[in-house]
Computed example of a mutant assay.
Amino acid sequence: MEWVPLLRWLHVLGACVLLGTGAGIAFFMVMAHRSGDAKVIAHTAHIVVIADFLFTASAVILQPVTGVLLAMLIGWRLTEGWLLLSIILYFVTGAFWLPVVWIQHRMKKLAKAAAQADSVLPPDYFRLYRIWFACGFPAFFSVLGIVWLMTNRPALDLW
Rank of each mutant, 00 (worst) to 15 (best):
G14A: 01
G24M: 08
G36L: 11
V40K: 14
G20L: 07
V17Q: 01
G36R: 09
D37V: 04
A42E: 12
A26E: 09
F27H: 10
K39T: 12
G14P: 00
D37L: 03
H43W: 07
H43K: 12
L18A: 02
S35M: 08
V40F: 05
A15S: 02
A32M: 05
G20R: 05
R34S: 07
L18G: 02
L18T: 01
M31I: 08
V17L: 04
L18C: 02
F27M: 13
A42V: 11
G14F: 00
L18D: 00
T21C: 13
K39I: 04
H33G: 06
F28K: 13
A23H: 07
T44F: 06
K39S: 14
C16E: 00
V30E: 07
H43C: 04
V17P: 00
I25H: 05
A42K: 11
A42C: 11
L19W: 05
S35W: 08
T44K: 09
H33Y: 15
M29H: 15
V40Q: 13
G22S: 03
A26T: 15
D37S: 04
G22T: 03
H33K: 12
V12L: 03
T44Y: 08
V40D: 09
A42W: 12
T21D: 10
D37G: 04
L19S: 11
V40E: 13
I41F: 04
L18Q: 02
L19T: 07
K39Y: 05
F28C: 11
